[in-house]
Amino acid sequence: MTITVLCKWCPDTEDLEVGSDGSISFERAKWSISEYDRVALEVATSLATEVGEVVAVVAGTSIIDTSMTRKSVLSRGPDRLVMVVDDRLAEADARQSASALAGAIARIGDVDLVLCGAGSTDLFAQQVGIQVGERLGWPTLNEVASVHLTGSSCRVERRVVDEIDTLEVALPVALAVTADAALPRVPGMREILAAGKKPTVVWSLDDLGPPAAVDRASQVVSTVARSHSTRLQVLFEGSPTEAAAQLVGALRHESLV
């Protein structure tokens, strides 16, 4: 059995900088595997101890084609890595990413289960996993809290609002797991060193056939940060009574009481 895990190599949102005009810059951000995909990797690795191999798939521009990306992904458990590296994926939308990833899965062949995180750390559009399943023509479920393989099918628990649905789904299937489906491992030196020895293949979109390279479904016109009210961070000093009086005075000054 082969399980593939879709991993996004993306900038850390904690490092994003918002300009005075609302513009968003990731220029100084550190890149890493999307936090939600780490959960999917952990789910896959725990399943694979019983049944087979785990192949991680990453797609993006040449920015992802580094030894750091490879070792970072492979140190988290998968047996091998497939990278789709193509600069035509610059600022790819969900449709383009899903097409590339589905093309890679088709080329890997004999894949029984595709896992991905609930969304990506940077955008959290929650679209790619669903669209990959759709492009492959497989049953596709999101909000999956647990997965158990049962021969030619799998049993999943799916959280929907206040319910937990248990479903039996025939393989192959694509699943987007919830953020708490597993606690991702913290790779140690042994796993990191072993990662450098695991196999990686790099394909371009052209290696995957025409369906993998598609046009954008939409064009981004602009991206600006949503405005938030600024915290004044005023510290009122003195006795509790004095500080309370100052607080009430400040609230009145702002016409809030």
Binding site: K71, S75, P187, M189, I192
Partner: peptide, 10 residues
């Protein structure tokens, strides 16, 4: 790479 990844893990 190994040092950076180990620090990230830590």
């Amino acid at each position: 790479d190994e040092q950076q990844l180990l620090l990230d893990s830590f």
